Simulated scan of single mutants.
Amino acid sequence: MRCVMWTRTCATCPADCGECPMTAGVKTAIGLPVIVVFISFTFIAVWFRYQKQKMFWDESWVIDFSEIKQDQLARTTMGSIMSVPNANSDSNASCVTALSSCTGGPNAPRKQLFTHTGIYDGRTVAIKRIQTKTFSLTKTIRREVKQIRELDHPNLCKFFGGCVEVPNVAIITEYCPKGSLNDVLLNEEIPLNWGFRFSFATDIARGMSYLHHHRICHGRLKSPNCVIDDRWVCKITDFCLPTYRIEDLAEGPNTYQQRLREVYMPPEAQTSSLEPTLQWDVFR
């Protein structure tokens, strides 16, 4: 009696089914593609893992600080400065203007260079100096660098590399010549309509949405950390690399910096030492 039930197989009914009717050639034709697909999948998985490990240990992003030319002309024509209130002033507000438009008399507020720039590989770059006495490329820092190198968005400042030799430890990023958003908004010589302001807000939202999509918290989002390029596109900077950015300064933040930090900090973080979260970025 032949097996007519769909639940029956040769294993459960060997007497009725008999030998498998497929020839050796048919079995080979079916099994060979399956083996090839399995081997290809395994090879691709191993290759991707190798590429990730290769990028982790890759040091092509390391920049020799001596290769960065300190172009004084660029620093005086394109750099931006921040006017910090005098010590005897009770105001915590800052007056920020573009360097090319600043003129000051004896009673003008004290001015400090806000963005350090240099020439690297034929282009102007922003230099973030890290004040530290010791520095080593730990696995944590390598992991942070690998993470930021994988990011690519038009509203994020591009990471070019970093200097790792003390005392010239620095982070080298894309330079935006219009200065920070703080510079632009408080510069009375730049008339901005609400169309421009809405465009800046949209650019920031797009950049932050990209970071949050990759589960990355900025933690220090504020107008000085949003910069404007020569096409008036707002870009976010000073993100990622939390361990790389740690400084070992003996002096803490000054009154102005502390007040600025409190203004942008969410209420629940005012009296705690919690790690920054995505919700903090939304509050800012």
Rank of each mutant, 00 (worst) to 15 (best):
L99G: 08
T115D: 04
K146Y: 12
Y256Q: 15
N193A: 09
Q51N: 14
C240W: 01
R245V: 03
E189S: 13
V169E: 00
Y244T: 06
T277M: 09
I148S: 02
F283H: 09
F43E: 06
D16A: 11
K158S: 06
Q147S: 10
A29I: 15
T140M: 05
V4P: 00
M82K: 14
F160H: 14
I141H: 05
A24N: 13
L274M: 06
T124F: 13
C163L: 10
H213P: 00
M1Y: 08
P167Q: 09
P106W: 11
P191D: 12
S94G: 06
S272Q: 08
V166T: 07
R110S: 04
L73M: 14
C17E: 08
G195V: 06
K133T: 09
V145T: 07
T134W: 13
H214E: 05
S136G: 03
Q51W: 09
R110M: 02
M78W: 07
W47T: 05
V125A: 06
N225D: 08
C13R: 07
S80G: 04
G161P: 01
F135E: 06
A74C: 10
S89W: 02
V145M: 07
H212A: 00
P106A: 12
F38M: 13
L156N: 00
G122F: 01
V46K: 13
V233I: 15
K178D: 03
L249P: 01
C102R: 10
I172W: 02
D16K: 11
E150Q: 06
D230K: 07
T23N: 10
G195E: 12
Q147I: 14
D58P: 03
S101E: 11
D281P: 01
P167W: 02
P177L: 03
I228E: 04
S209L: 08
A126I: 03
L156C: 01
V227A: 02
T7H: 08
Y244V: 10
D281A: 03
V26P: 04
D16L: 05
G219E: 02
I171Y: 08
T124H: 14
L278Y: 03
K128E: 07
I148Q: 01
T140G: 06
S94L: 13
E268S: 10
C234S: 05
I127R: 05
G207M: 01
S199H: 05
